[in-house]
């Protein structure tokens, strides 16, 4: 009877796990491995691939040419660095914007708090294209911002706000704000307000209290928020596509070009792998640090 119940249990487990395992192995792990393989293959002359090992894809990103047709060119490295720069700027802006607000929300009454959290989560549900489109309306030459500035007499000619790094940062900040706000807010909520009182009573200035008490205690939320904003910003291709134009290319746009226009799939796969590598480095540092912290407690 016992062996029967065990086998039935195992049967149930297999039945529960088999569909997902099969699905994700075929349609997630498989494609990822194929992409990894592609990044080491030679691009064919007319699109497609040549099936032999080829390491120049990775060299090309850094500027080394294949030695036959190309010269040393740092254009890809520049775009990569620009992507990192824009992503870092986005992270810093969202952090500076969200941090004070998180504190303000945590001082409100329970009902107002719930309303604020609702208002923060609602954008999650609204279409991203629509939210970015709103900024097209605001930033373009005949847009809301220029008309407002002209009406107030600050400018006489419309400013070129679209198609700049600033426009891309504004767009990314706008769509990723909830990713930063919610983790910070949850760590601010957990902060014991008595500690602030204690710190003040012990003679600390507000700045010292912030540096020694508030900041370290809310750091987990800050780090989580930064990672949650940085990773999608880095590989973003929609925002630069809509607000950046051809001038502010990011690594995501380059990947799109390799696949849809240049037909150099191996190089596009290589660029995707670089995003994965950067993501893996960030996540493993994060997991390592948090594991160490857990062990220290």
């Amino acid at each position: 009877m016992k062996s029967l119940s065990i086998s039935r249990k195992q049967l149930m487990l297999v039945a529960l796990l088999a569909p997902t395992s099969l699905f994700l192995l075929v349609f997630f792990v498989g494609p990822m491995l194929i992409m990894l393989t592609y990044s080491f293959l030679e691009p064919g002359l007319y699109g497609g691939v040549e099936w032999h090992f080829y390491h120049w894809n990775y060299g090309r990103v850094l500027g080394w040419a294949d030695g036959f047709y190309e010269e040393f060119d740092t254009v890809y490295l520049e775009i990569l660095l620009r992507s990192v720069g824009l992503a870092v700027a986005t992270v810093l802006c969202t952090l500076c914007i969200c941090y004070p607000v998180a504190f303000w929300v945590s001082t409100l009454s329970a009902k107002k708090k719930a309303l604020c959290i609702f208002l923060m989560t609602l954008p999650f549900f609204a279409s991203m294209v629509v939210r970015l489109y709103a900024w097209v309306l605001i930033l373009r030459n005949s847009g809301f911002a220029n008309q407002f500035l002209e009406a107030t007499g600050l400018i006489t000619e419309p400013l070129n706000l679209m198609f700049s790094g600033t426009a891309v940062i504004i767009g990314m900040v706008y769509i990723f704000i909830p990713f930063m706000f919610l983790p910070i807010y949850s760590s601010v909520e957990k902060l014991d307000k008595n500690l602030l009182q204690a710190s003040e009573d012990l003679g600390a200035t507000p700045f010292t209290t912030f540096r020694k008490v508030i900041f370290p205690l809310t750091l987990p939320g800050i780090v989580a928020g930064c990672i949650l904003v940085f990773i999608p910003s880095l590989g973003n291709f929609v925002v630069p596509n809509i607000l950046g134009g051809a001038k502010v290319l990011m690594i995501g746009n380059m990947i799109e070009q390799q696949f849809l226009y240049a037909r150099n799939w191996p190089f596009g796969a290589t660029l995707s792998m670089i995003i994965i590598f950067m993501m893996m480095i960030i996540l493993s540092i994060y997991l390592y640090k948090s594991a160490k912290k857990q062990a220290a407690l």
């Binding site: 349609f27 494609p31 990822m32 995707s272 995003i275 994965i276």
Partner: peptide, 30 residues
């Protein structure tokens, strides 16, 4: 309780954090 517990957690965690352009490209190639 079974041996592959942490493997499955990872398998279900990764698609969520994977930047969507990377997943899109991988699926296109596939």
């Amino acid at each position: 309780r079974f041996k592959l517990h942490s493997f499955y957690r990872l398998l279900l965690f990764v698609p969520m954090v994977m930047p969507d352009i990377v997943l899109g490209i991988a699926l296109l190639i596939f």
